[in-house]
Design a protein around this nucleic acid. Structure first.
Length: 202
DNA sequence: TGCCAGGCCCTCTTTAGGGCCTT
């Protein structure tokens, strides 16, 4: 299966449309069942971090004050990711920030995104919930560090991706590919069984 | 003062509402 870039942002809020900015990004390259490369950096976007976000992430205003400018970090991480397909947990969130932060440096994203949250809802419907931390615990995936920091969460999401690909091949007998998971995440959840049967017989 | 998003999914649905998930 082709190499995939799994990313995670820490931000000052939930939406760039409301002025939220990135404070940290991590990207890991997933290939042949393991993480083969890592990128992580705090970034200074010149905005204050709300106190409740600092409580959640541990990222302080002092930490980002001493970090490289967001523009430099985004150029670096865009080079690191290249044109690989991308994955994130709740990708609609990370994709918004990816596109927004790239637009600020005059760049555009061309990589397709897939989402481990949408896949997990379809492939692991009996999980207690579909938070990244819960799925990591239930699947007995390795601890990756402090939750709500970008590198730990990106590694967690990459390990979850590996687990979901294993479910696809071991339980459903289909050969995983990015185009397959891209398709499956768009299938209505109620019809995932039919889609897997079609994929198996294809 | 208080609130601020948005895509997905389920259901007591589809001319809607509410919970989940990300920070």
């Amino acid at each position: 299966m082709e190499a995939i870039a799994v990313i995670d942002f820490e931000t000052t809020g939930l939406s760039p449309a409301c002025g939220s900015r990135a404070t940290e990004i991590a990207a890991v390259i997933w290939q042949n069942g393991r993480i083969v490369d890592r990128y992580q950096s705090l970034m200074n976007a010149g905005v204050a971090i709300p106190a409740d976000i600092t409580r959640l992430t541990g990222i302080t205003n002092a930490m980002v004050r001493n970090a490289p400018p967001a523009s430099a970090v985004m150029r670096e991480v865009a080079d690191f990711v290249g044109n690989r397909p991308m994955v994130a947990h709740n990708a609609s969130f990370d994709r918004k920030f990816w596109e927004s932060e790239l637009a600020r440096i005059g760049a555009q994203s061309t990589s397709p995104f897939a989402c481990t949250l949408l896949l997990a809802r379809r492939l692991l419907p009996d999980a207690p919930d579909h938070k990244l931390s819960t799925l990591t615990r239930c699947a007995r995936l390795p601890a990756t560090g402090q939750a709500h920091r970008a590198l730990a969460d990106a590694e967690m999401a990459a390990n979850l991706l590996g687990h979901l690909l294993g479910v696809l091949s071991d339980k459903h007998g289909v050969t995983p590919s990015f185009s397959l998971i891209s398709m499956l995440q768009r299938v209505p959840a109620a019809k995932i069984g039919d889609a897997l049967r079609r994929a198996r017989s294809a």
